[in-house]
Computed example of a mutant assay.
Amino acid sequence: MQFDSQEVAYADMSVRIFDSTLAKLRGLGYEKETETEALYAAGNQPIGIQDGNVKYSGNLKVLNGELQKLNAAAKAAGYADILEVPYQVIVITVTYREGFGRPLQTDVLRGVKFSKYDKGMSQNDKFKEVEIPFLYLSLSDK
């Protein structure tokens, strides 16, 4: 049995939106969550665990120039900014390069809806990092 302690690194990840790779990406997190709760009947101990709705959410962290690029793409498509683009047309593709025995992995987030972003800076800021939270409808691997 062979063990390999090399994990995927941030540098091994690339993210594409609107057929463009995000060059000024500072971070990306996305998750799938299933609502769960204990199921009770007679007595005070649970007899099972019940599943409910599934929720997909995430957070994109980019430099301000990347946000401007995304907003420009939205304007070119006829929308005011990235928040106005319908979820039906936004897909985020996340690719993790193969290496050290791990295979190429691609995650596809479909039906992405960005919900907010902030603007502004503070004294002595050297750059502007923007967090853009989002919801999405499904997660699949290619």
Rank of each mutant, 00 (worst) to 15 (best):
E35H: 03
N53W: 09
S14Q: 05
E66H: 07
A11I: 01
L67N: 10
N59C: 12
T36N: 01
S115H: 01
G58A: 13
Y87P: 14
F127P: 02
E31Q: 11
D51C: 09
L83S: 08
E33G: 05
S122E: 13
D19M: 00
Q88L: 14
G120E: 08
G65Q: 09
V94S: 05
R110V: 08
V54S: 13
N124L: 11
L60I: 10
Q123Y: 14
M1S: 10
K126Y: 11
T106W: 06
G27Y: 04
G99N: 09
P133L: 10
D19E: 10
A76H: 07
I82R: 05
E37H: 05
L135N: 15
K24W: 05
E98A: 14
V89Q: 15
D4G: 01
K113T: 10
I92W: 06
A42L: 07
A38C: 02
K119C: 07
P133Q: 10
S20N: 08
L139N: 06
G29I: 03
F114S: 09
R16W: 00
Q50I: 12
K113G: 11
D81R: 03
N59D: 14
G43P: 03
Q88P: 05
L28I: 12
E37M: 04
K119F: 07
D12N: 08
T95N: 02
G99K: 05
T21I: 06
A80S: 11
L67C: 11
A41P: 01
E33A: 11
Q50D: 12
D81L: 01
R97A: 14
I92N: 10
G48M: 07
L139I: 04
Y56I: 00
V89K: 14
A42S: 09
G120L: 06
F18R: 01
D118K: 03
N71Q: 15
L39R: 02
N44Q: 09
L83A: 10
Y40S: 06
K24H: 06
D141R: 03
K24M: 04
I17N: 01
L104I: 08
F127N: 12
N44S: 12
L22Y: 04
L67S: 11
S115W: 00
A76T: 14
L109G: 10
E98T: 04
T106V: 15
F3P: 00
D19P: 00
K75R: 15
Y117I: 00
R26D: 08
D81V: 02
L137I: 06
N71T: 13
K75F: 07
Q88V: 15
L70V: 15
G58H: 12
Y96W: 06
D12K: 03
R102T: 06
N64W: 04
N71F: 12
L25P: 02
K119I: 13
M1R: 04
L83N: 09
A74E: 11
F114W: 09
K75T: 11
M1Q: 07
F3D: 05
I82L: 14
E129K: 03
K142D: 04
M121K: 05
K61C: 05
I92M: 11
Y40H: 08
K75G: 11
E129Y: 00
S14F: 00
G58D: 15
L139H: 12
L60A: 09
E7L: 07
